[in-house]
Write a protein that binds this DNA or RNA. Structure first.
Lengths: 205, 205
DNA sequence: ATCTGTGAAGCACTTCACAGCG
DNA sequence: CGCTGTGAAGTGCTTCACAGAT
């Protein structure tokens, strides 16, 4: 659960570095992230001693350490399954590459899309998924297929040895232990917010 | 934190209903969702007594109750800010409307996009945001603008009285109490998975 | 016999508070 | 004097286990 927060710290530190700040205290970092200073110190102490008493943390040094701890110091290769509207938006999204996450393979079932060149890569048929990933393995699978077939695709990715999956399909996933599946699910977020909206409708708390 | 899980239960129940199952036990529901039966019973008991001892829960009745509790029994009106590539993918995404979440207004700064008709709505200039939301209020704001201006847009939405925001920008948000902001942040999810991938690289746990 | 609803126990994460270093 | 690192205390969520209902 510490690991849930470390990327947030890394992001804030990257911004501080960009702003030219050299040193930051747990109090200042905590204020930016709305996290208590004690939480930050505890989280960091789990991995080492990165601060200087009386001064705080060196922004660049701590960022470098966090990137090492999190594995953000390398390039990660990803395969996209599903190149419909959502899949194309994911392909065109410019936010992955600068963080070291590159989509190097893409698959779909639709014959109108299979064979097309999109950016630097060619969309293959899903039937080629297993041989293609055997020939050129990836670290992460991105599932952007309709809900009805998402579990099958996830199973196929698991068979290919993929250990991390970013799942855009709104389904509860079955997976063996040792495989990480993370959801990206805006509808779920909306449904959670609806509860709070309902309460707020009558402003009398 | 109970509220985080209820939408998952509702989703699973909707599927069970679609499959024609009439009754479900906490054990069966728990197995589908990878949640302990005790957790489910405890969560539900917080809002009432919906089950029959010795039998389980009536699928349709429980689903209806959950939809009421969560506020999923109504239509929610949303405004989209930012109609770039990401924003257009959000507009075209078919998953919101069936769940009662409708985008009824859209705004951008780009003069090439402002004025365009996309589906049933016309993209307005962000300068019109505050008057437009005053004239036709929405329940939820969707922020799909670049990170650098996301906080400004969130502040503007808060000024307009918007109490719930779905935020696609990768920034730590500042917001007053009483406003719910939920992130949709695939990069954060990837960065969290990277940590586990790093450990898995050497399969010797 | 089966499965819910729930107090009580257990566990995990968070915050406190202070010794110790710069 | 300021701020980190950390045991200890506190808080809240999860699981247990069983009485009770069908």
């Amino acid at each position: 659960m510490v690991v849930e927060r470390l990327p947030l710290y890394a992001r804030a530190l990257a911004l501080l570095q960009y702003e030219g700040q050299e040193v930051v205290s747990s109090a200042e970092l905590g204020e930016r992230l709305r996290v208590t200073p004690a939480q930050i110190r505890k989280d960091l102490s789990y991995f080492g001693r990165f601060g200087k008493q009386g001064r705080g943390y060196n922004v660049s040094k701590l960022l470098e350490e966090l990137r090492l701890i999190l594995g953000l110091d390398r390039q990660w290769r990803m395969a996209l399954i599903g190149v419909g509207k959502l899949g194309r938006a994911i392909l065109e999204y410019g936010g992955f590459a600068p963080q070291g996450f590159r989509i190097v393979q893409a698959f779909d079932v639709n014959p109108d899309i299979v064979g097309k060149e999109l950016g630097a890569l060619v969309v293959r048929d899903v039937s080629e998924l297993e041989p293609a990933l055997a020939a050129e393995p990836v670290d992460i699978g991105i599932v952007a297929v309709p809900a009805q077939v998402a579990q099958q695709i996830i199973d196929a990715l698991v068979r290919c040895g993929v250990k991390a999956i970013l799942n855009y399909a709104p389904i509860p996933v079955h997976k063996p232990p040792g495989v990480e599946v993370r959801p990206v699910d805006p509808v779920l977020q909306l449904q959670r917010m609806a509860y709070y909206l309902k309460s707020l409708a009558i402003p009398t708390k």
